[in-house]
Amino acid sequence: MRKNAWGMTRGGLFCCGLMAAGMALQLAVGPLRWDALAWPLNGVCLFVLLTGIVLMHLCRRKVRLFRWMATLQAGIPAMLTCAMLTVLMGVTRQVPTGHAPAEPFGITAMLSFWPFVLAYFWLMLLVGMVTLTRLRPRWRNVPFLLNHLGIFIALVAGTLGSADVQTLRMMVAEGKTEWRAVDVRYRVHELPVAIELHDFSIEQEPMPVFKSDVTVYTKNGLVVRDTIRVNKPLAVRGWKIYQYSYEESRPEVGDISVFELVRDPWLPYVYLGIFMMLAGAVALFFGREKDDSQQAEGFDKGHNVSSPVLAHNSQERSELTSDSNSILTSKT
């Protein structure tokens, strides 16, 4: 227990150190520029991250630090740090994405706030290390792997991939073809896809829905004719085209339809992670933890309104009943 307690304290101290380092970085170099991470740099980061995790895992017998990284004593303080920073984000008014923070520390642009980024990075590293320790193909490892590998994949693909997400607005007048679009900072981009707007209309039934009748052309000769409406985006060659809004008919140009074009090359991996976690949640719902089989009898009778369905073993339970308020007393 002594050792465990030390493990958890170390986890906390480590996170404090990480926060301090993050704060220093923040003051030294300013908020993290996510867009600097665009391909191929994020690919390099991914390679370094995965190799690093595997190497640390392989050296775990020699290096205590690496062994400790795959334990709950390291993981819980990391989750706590992330939770606290997330709550801090929840109680501060955030500036829109891509804007500079509204105060000197940078917490109003939390996603670019170094301590926040480092905390989540640490969590990601730990969950990656934990995953490797249980990679053996056993049935009872499956729920564990779905949850932990799932969140690892989703976190990695979501964060590293974020710089490659392109979100652009394109305005097309009726009868015209457009291939230029602007990003959030109003920079103009020429795209490999062009949209020709045949007709823009507003469906009134059962409530106003904008829809655009379009033909989409791509550079390599693909031509798609379709209707885009709110909630019914069109997918063409890695781009998703959403109906965003419209501008009232102006005498000289007619209706203008505004589209949002989104490209997210890492999305399949994020989805992979999300679906693994969904399966993991189902497993969490239906699963029993080890050692509860001998108690299944008791719970099947269900005498109690909230029939105790056992999430832990009997030894633990008797220990708790006999001694439920002595905090942090231990098995030693």
Binding site: M277, L284, L310, A311
Partner: peptide
């Protein structure tokens, strides 16, 4: 000081799985 821990743990696990699904 009545032991309800087994039920609490279990409901929380079930709750967490619902939260996860809802969030995703």
């Amino acid at each position: 000081k009545q032991d309800q821990l087994a039920a609490i743990d279990n409901l929380t696990r079930v709750g967490l799985s619902f939260l996860t699904v809802g969030m995703l």
